[in-house]
Amino acid sequence: MSTLDGVITGIVDAHLHQWNPRSTPWAANRLSKLYRFVPAFGDRVFSMAVSQADREYVLTPSTVARVYEPMQYLGDASAVTTIAGVPIDTVVHMESHWRSDETAGRAESPAGRSAVEETRYVMGLPFGVGQSPRLGAIVAHADPRSERFGELLDEHSVLTDRLRGIRWITTRHPDPKIRNGADVDGILASTAFLKGFAEVAERGLVFDAFVYSHQLYDVVTLAREYPEVTIVVDHMGAPVGVFGPVGARTGATAGARADILRLWRERMVTLAACPNVMVKMSGLGLPVLGYGRERWGNIGSRGTLAEMVGPLVEHVVGHFGADRVMFGSNFPIDKPNAALDMIIGALVDLLAPRGDYVLARAFRDNAMRVYGIE
């Protein structure tokens, strides 16, 4: 099997979450309040106490109910060097406010405060200590629709010189049993969002877009309106249900899954025509893609993962090219389905036939450039 030894000195993980449910700011969120107490009651209470949408999104409460900081990540990454030939030496922290809140972009609101406090929390974590990877960049939580959006960005910038971008999750799905990250449709293409987004452009920040595949045309609208801003589409555009049934009816039949894949392909081709858009090859083990509902994992092996995501990866790289793709783990959300070394190994296997240039760009160079990592 192929490795990255001799191609790059180390991997950049461009999509990592960190949290401590007992102390991180978003623990004030109504759902994570429940998660805090889940370990004391076990998976049975989790399955009874939260919605199907949330159960399918995280598979197990341990994903979000337990501490996940540099020490835990280092444990997950310990086998990567053996598989890939090089370690993960740099990470990009991705904001973790993954529950919709219409006030979270306001600097004066509790949720707006928690977004700033999350940045403070991340800057206090022991990245770069011992064998732990260094923190290369932060993508913070902020809503361009807020009247005080610029002030909120200023507060983030005061706390860190590693602020490189923002993310505002806008995932919504017509299937009522699939988890929504936003409370309204069409946010990215809305007048208020497009107007406030000027602050992102003026500050030279990157925007990470997390949408489901049927929402990708909203990203096209944003990219055309602001061609000077680099937009990174998270999780390869998240074609929910492409591998199997999720929610109430999504991906329930082979025909439905074929339609999901076909529409995702069409939208990604349109998106690729926007030169300021990149794709993050993250979320390869994202549960809502339809891998299965078992809490102990649903993929099985590196080969199986490569076989399943191969058509997605090939389509993305084929249309976006080597200079517009990058790797991200989406850990610990993807952890129940696939170990970190398995995800990296599968992606190396898929990209290796394209040569060292593609491997170097996907696993290091593009993330370093896009997120301005020294």
Rank of each mutant, 00 (worst) to 15 (best):
D5C: 09
L16P: 04
P25K: 08
A27W: 13
K33N: 07
F37V: 01
R44N: 14
S47N: 15
A53M: 12
T60M: 06
P61G: 06
P70T: 13
Y73D: 03
A77E: 04
A84W: 12
V86N: 00
S96A: 11
R99N: 12
G112W: 00
E117F: 00
E118D: 14
R120F: 00
L125C: 03
G128Q: 00
V139I: 08
H141K: 12
A142W: 00
A142Q: 06
P144R: 02
D154L: 00
T160C: 12
L163C: 15
R164N: 08
R172L: 15
I178C: 06
A182H: 08
I187T: 15
A192V: 09
F193E: 03
E199W: 10
E202I: 01
L205H: 02
V206S: 06
Y212M: 10
H214I: 12
H214Y: 13
T221W: 08
P227Y: 06
D234C: 09
D234E: 12
G237M: 12
G241E: 07
P245H: 13
G247S: 00
G247K: 01
T253R: 14
R257G: 00
L263V: 13
L271M: 09
V277D: 02
P287T: 01
P287L: 03
V288G: 13
Y291M: 07
Y291R: 03
Y291C: 08
N298M: 01
N298S: 01
I299A: 02
S301C: 06
M308P: 01
V309A: 07
R324C: 15
V325D: 12
P332S: 10
I333K: 03
D334I: 00
P336K: 06
I343R: 04
A352Q: 05
R354E: 09
G355T: 14
G372S: 14
I373Q: 02
